[in-house]
Design a binder for these strands. Sequence first.
RNA 1: GCGCUCUUAGCUCAGUUGGUUAGAGCGCUACCUUGACAUGGUAGAGGUCACAAGUUCGAGUCUUGUAGAGCGCACCA
Length: 891
Amino acid sequence: MELPDRYNPKDVENRIYEWWLKGGFFKAEDKSTKIPFSIILPPPNVTGSLHLGHALNHTVQDVLVRWKRMQGFNVLWMPGTDHAGIATQSVVERELKKESKNRRDMGREKFVERVWEWKEQYGGRITEQMRYLGDSCDWDRLCFTLDDGVSKAVRKVFVDLYNKGLIYKGLKLINWSPALESAISDLEVEHKEVKGSIYHIRYPLADGSGHIEVATTRPETMLGDTAVAVHPDDERYQAWIGKQVKLPLTGRTIPIIADTYVDRAFGSGVVKITPAHDFNDYAVGQRHKLTMLNILNKDGTLNENGGAYQGKKVPDARKLVLADLEAQGFLVKTEPHTHQVGHCSRSGVVVEPYLSEQWFVKMAPLAAPAKRVVESGTVVFEPESWTKTYLHWMSIIEDWCISRQLWWGHRIPAWTCADCQKWTVSETDPTACSHCGSAKIKQEEDVLDTWFSSALWPFSTMGWPQKTELQDTFYPTSVLVTGFDIIFFWVARMIIMGLEFKQDVPFRTVYIHGVIRDAQGKKMSKSLGNAEDPVKLIEEFGADALRYTLLAQIAGGRDLKFSTQRLEGYRNFMNKLWNATRFSLNNLKDFTVPAEGLNALPNKSDMSDADQWIIYKLGVLEKEVDEGLRTYRFSDSTNAIYHFVWNIFCDWYLEFSKPVFLEGFDPKQKKATQLVLAQVLNRIVRLMHPFAPFITEEIYQKLPIRGEALIVESFPTVKLDKDLLALGVEEVAHNLDLVRETIAAIRNIRGENRIKPGVKIHVRLAPQDPRAQKVLGENKVAIMTLSRLEECSVGEAGDLAKCAVQPVQVKDMKVDVIVPLEGLVDIEEEVKRIRKAIEKLQKDVSLLTVRLADANFMANAPEDIVEQGKRQLTEAKAQIQTLDAALSRLI
RNA sequence: GCGCUCUUAGCUCAGUUGGUUAGAGCGCUACCUUGACAUGGUAGAGGUCACAAGUUCGAGUCUUGUAGAGCGCACCA
């Protein structure tokens, strides 16, 4: 079974994923002796397809889930999809339009049926795509927000809140999307800067005693004006308070009122009041009991109160009103004006403040405890800085408008009675009014905001309101992983509902990650055309490379810029690991696994310096990876692995192992190295599995030391590998550092002197102490191989004429590296090289001299820092001496 | 206006409680097909850490201010 020399993810990923599924490795146990760990997937829209944002979000969750699974936890990753009221309804309506149909002609029942058909046919796309990424969720538990169980939970919550007086229906000014013909919540309004105009309009006083000037950005709303307001202390207008003005174009008379809301300094200090079409004016209107005159229809056209402008859309009405005002001499002036205008985040159209009957959740009593659990640290945000944002929002929270004038969603479980007009609110469909017993009841047409059902997700997916073992085991969930954009939409509301209905928080930790941007830093979106399709990226580069790219960049929860270049780099990394495996397996062909398997230890006395060194480095790696995972600093973990695999394992350990595997070596040492190699490779794939699951599982299946399935093998830790790691002591590891430094010095001399790699050179190593002598002697063959030497002596310095010299020091071990250059190169290059080295050392020396001469430093700095400085100064001086001597021999 | 981030090599970013002479990847320069890998190897160039002041023996790191960028919330009609 020869491995191909390139890793081809396409040959691997599907096969491995199917194998995991068959093995049932993703399944959680309802009840178990194992410690539970649970995550609920933020349910993506059924209409959606996987984008990079999902890829990032899911990868983080999958990393946590796989890590905990390997650590022996009973892991539940609960998958699901969201019915996404507006989005899904829009998709199907667009389809209908192509068939020249519309939902109103079709009727509610038929239409909803049609949406279900659509969902059955296309709703599985995103969950299908999640498998390409490697998501290891418990698919048997897949939920949909309109499932029976979840719907029952939604109804119960609605009824309970209603009975507690926390849900009410009322006539209020709400945000209205004329495109959707539905209410939307405050959060669904995006404020965008718009360059418009401000118009100054003259309103004549009814008694003919003059006129008053108002300014507005929305002149058409004057048709709905029911007052004009000035500041009560404004001296200019004292005489006018209480008088009437005659509204141009309509001829209605409206009062001049006084209200402190008016800013005297802005404009003329007079404000027209349109209570039915502006939130501030609405508040003024309520204070003064003004008429609320609605001038709009649901579709954003003017209604019968619009007089001559009835039937016109707002922008058209605006033009006509302005033209008429101007013609009649009421328009004083027009000035350019930039201001924020609310747009519907779903449809993009301008949102209209609109007076209508809607259902609301009273937030104040619910928000208070939800605020407290974050303040007290029962729920922790990671990174912590989001805490403040959350708390700020919770303190300015308004009642939540939960009704939507749509058909796709949870229909509000409330019935009006034609006889007594009262509401019957019930978990099961009632047949009679609960107040008067009349059978003439009719269900509310509206459905609930999609986020209403999402708010219950952590427990509704676990069978609530039934009592279930699943809830006992997994609620509260362990971590919630999500983007900051839905902290308010979703996170806050889950905390509220969890506390209200489960008497406990829904999760302990909220990990907030950033948003993915393109290489230029722009937000990725379909409309901008800069969105990379993760499915295509996976096909080209592999899921592991994509996951690694995302993970390596999310430190600190900041936004990340996505570049294909980076992705290529991690694809190369996967290939590097693949080839390291190929090399290892080739050299392990005659290796027989000891009976102890995973716990097999080499004979310490048989181990080379390199063997001990790699074991020591492995211990460092295990610590780093664990630390990164525990602190949600995934990039620390992925970077540590990357560095270990490439720059430690491949660059040095495998290179050192090469001479060992050649003929003629001590068979005992070869055996030790084979065992170390097999053990280290085993640790690498286990450590890397949560981050790059496919390639590691594929490799694992080919390793000599392995179990059944990597996905459920134990995750390596310093504690678990205690015995193995005891074989790699830091002090001994320095031996190899000396060897590596020596090789680096030879290579540097070679490189700087432009000695071609083909030219075999002779090197003399002159150790300055017995330990260096021993270490270098033992590693002579490796040094020769790695720095391509023809000859190498360890001992006397010998004749130094026409030689390149480089002192090397690691801890107390010192060696002078001597390369005779006679006949090889122009001495000039070596002179330059030595001068450069001296220059650098001199900089160090002057810096250290100054520091050590500073009495304050000597008095205040800790002893070890001072000692370190002294040592470095001595060393640098000694090295300069050696180099100076070498230089003087050359010139 | 309030709040939160950010500013480090040509580019993208690490740099955890202040400790020496600031790192990585990509890109760049020169060289190399050596029996795992050219999706590779070796060597090298490249930074007054946005700016200013302060605290300190010592500041990329802490404090304050300035300038610039991004985001969230609330907004004057």
